[in-house]
């Protein structure tokens, strides 16, 4: 039996009738067409699917969409300011922090949550907080550098 889901996605209020067994990632990708959130494992083990819910990075493949009821969700599509890339996005590009890019949405959303919480992280802080993110391409070092760089850029913005 379908149930009503009301939540805010990238600043827009949404109301949907969904099957409660659906995961948040399914609703985002399939019902809302927000395919920037990727999905790479079936066991909650890679954090590829990370989105921000009420300010915290969470795995959209491991949360039922109904668990997002009444909450505020930000996906990778909601990060840029109109045509202008967010400083984290630009830092990822400039530091070659992405290769195939499949894990990047999750990495960037987690980086956003991290920097919101801790604007001046050390490399160790980043390693600890981003440890759940698997990436088969990069070897992580350049992602860490991008986040350190993004922290500087964000400070410069203020």
């Amino acid at each position: 039996m379908k149930q009503i889901l009301q939540f805010t996605v990238n600043g827009e209020p949404r109301e949907l009738l969904i099957d409660p067994k659906k995961f948040l990632v399914e609703v985002l990708r399939e019902d809302l067409g927000l395919t920037g959130t990727h999905w790479a494992c079936d066991t909650g083990a890679c954090c590829c699917c990370t989105v921000i819910m009420d300010g915290k990075a969470v795995k959209s493949c491991s949360i039922l969409a109904m668990q997002a009821n009444g909450r505020e969700v930000t996906t990778i599509e909601g990060l840029a300011d109109g045509p202008n890339l967010h400083p984290i996005q630009q830092a990822f590009i400039d530091n070659w922090a992405l290769q195939c890019g499949f894990c990047s949405s999750g990495q960037i959303m987690a980086a956003k949550a991290l920097l919101d919480e801790n604007p001046s992280p050390t490399r160790e802080d980043i390693q600890l907080q981003m440890d759940g993110h698997l990436c088969r391409c990069t070897g992580f070092n350049m992602i860490q550098e991008a986040i350190l760089d993004a922290a500087e850029r964000l400070k410069g913005q203020k």
Partner: peptide, 21 residues
């Protein structure tokens, strides 16, 4: 010269379409 990825903007904004998408 160190050059950013030409697909970078697409891949960091979720615009890039993989077959998966």
């Amino acid at each position: 010269k160190p050059t950013g990825n030409v697909d970078g903007a697409a891949k960091t904004t979720g615009e890039a379409k993989y077959c998966f998408d």
